[in-house]
């Protein structure tokens, strides 16, 4: 498979990987609720583009379907749902005021995570394929940055976005490593995410009804001390 890939295609892959990373950083540096959702949407659109690119490079037709599905569900429906939720939230201030980790440290930490991902990818004994070696670290990075977003932020919505970023990383990983392992499972996954987002939106509603905010500082009463 790898011998079919032209040098310019490799460059394209590289550049698209870079753009995807930059889009991910977009989520890290923003404060506003709708900013995250926009950033997430852009990221997902780029992800879909990347998948199409991979489909083109590896000429596996299933991936086109997968890419279309991604675009449909993750770039259109899920942001729609979340935008709807944001609009309906009770709290007037829709900004992340003071996250656990300040934005500038977050950015640096994310860069560190990217570094870590690259090391991890180097350690892993899978790099026979050019697409894999380009995107494996990127998918790790997405994964870890998503984790980091969840860890460092106080707003529940942001945590959902973090979760979705993780999921995007996972998805990219799956596509890259297995070249679309199975359409059925892919669809099952998408459905899972969709249901997950809907459930978490319900939770968000409840949260904002009960606590008048979606700040997770309200969610610290269950503890042992």
């Amino acid at each position: 498979m790898s011998d079919l890939i032209l040098p310019t295609q490799i460059d394209l892959l590289h550049v698209s990987a870079v753009i995807l990373l930059i889009a991910t950083f977009g989520i890290v540096v923003r404060r506003g609720f709708s900013d995250w959702l926009h950033a997430y949407r852009y990221q997902t659109i780029i992800l879909a583009g990347v998948v199409t690119l991979i489909a083109f490079v590896t000429s596996i037709w299933e991936l086109y379907i997968v890419s279309a599905l991604t675009l449909g569900i993750k770039a259109i429906i899920i942001p729609k749902v979340l935008f709807y939720v944001t609009k309906k939230l009770d709290s007037p201030i829709k900004l992340e005021m003071n996250p656990y980790v300040s934005l500038r440290i977050s950015v640096i930490a994310s860069a560190l995570l990217v570094a870590m991902s690259y090391f991890m990818a180097l350690q892993l004994p899978i790099s026979s394929d050019k697409t894999i070696s380009v995107f494996l670290p990127v998918s790790f990075s997405l994964f870890f940055i998503g984790l980091f977003i969840i860890i460092s932020r106080r707003k529940a919505l942001n945590q959902i976005v973090g979760l979705l970023t993780i999921e995007n990383g996972l998805f990219l990983f799956a596509v890259v490593v297995t070249h679309g392992f199975s359409l059925i499972i892919e669809i099952g996954l998408m459905a899972d995410i969709l249901v997950g987002v809907i459930i978490s939106s319900i939770l968000l509603f409840r949260m904002s009804h009960t606590f008048d905010s979606v700040d997770i500082k309200n969610l610290e009463s269950l503890r042992d001390d």
Binding site: L103, R104, L112
Partner: peptide
Amino acid sequence: SDLIAMAISSSMI
């Protein structure tokens, strides 16, 4: 400093 942090991490990558 946030912006500059962005520059640092960008060059680190």
